[in-house]
């Protein structure tokens, strides 16, 4: 993967994650901009139940063009904003690396 793409990937992914969380939870612009890596998600936000998490992950799959396996979904991945972001960035890097190997 070219270096410039590697640099853009986390920024793009973070923007997409903030947008999807805003859409799912109905957060204000201010509230969504305050989310940092330690902000609690699943377990801390009562409205984020299993249905909402399933919708959130499906929307992230669509917007980021990735596939999340159910056995990858656990407390570490969903517990905090930072945990979920790290997972998504790793998923997209894997996919980009796979695509460059295939081409």
């Amino acid at each position: 993967m070219p270096a410039d793409e590697a640099g853009e990937l986390p920024v793009e992914t973070e923007l997409a994650l903030r947008q999807v969380l805003q859409d799912v939870l109905g957060l204000s612009d201010e509230r969504v901009s305050e989310l940092d890596e330690d902000s609690g998600l699943f377990g801390d936000l009562p409205e984020l139940d299993s249905m909402a998490v399933a919708g959130l992950l499906t929307e992230l799959e669509d917007r980021l063009d990735i596939l999340i396996e159910d056995d990858e979904v656990d407390g570490d991945m969903l517990g905090t904003f930072g945990g979920l972001l790290d997972f998504l960035v790793a998923k997209r890097s894997e996919k980009a690396a796979q695509a460059s190997r295939d081409s």
């Binding site: 299993s50 998490v53 399933a54 919708g55 992950l57 499906t58 669509d62 159910d70 979904v73």
Partner: peptide, 14 residues
Amino acid sequence: ASQLRSMIRARVLS
């Protein structure tokens, strides 16, 4: 199909 996928995921999580 996508909606079913999401509904099954919710069931797995619950």
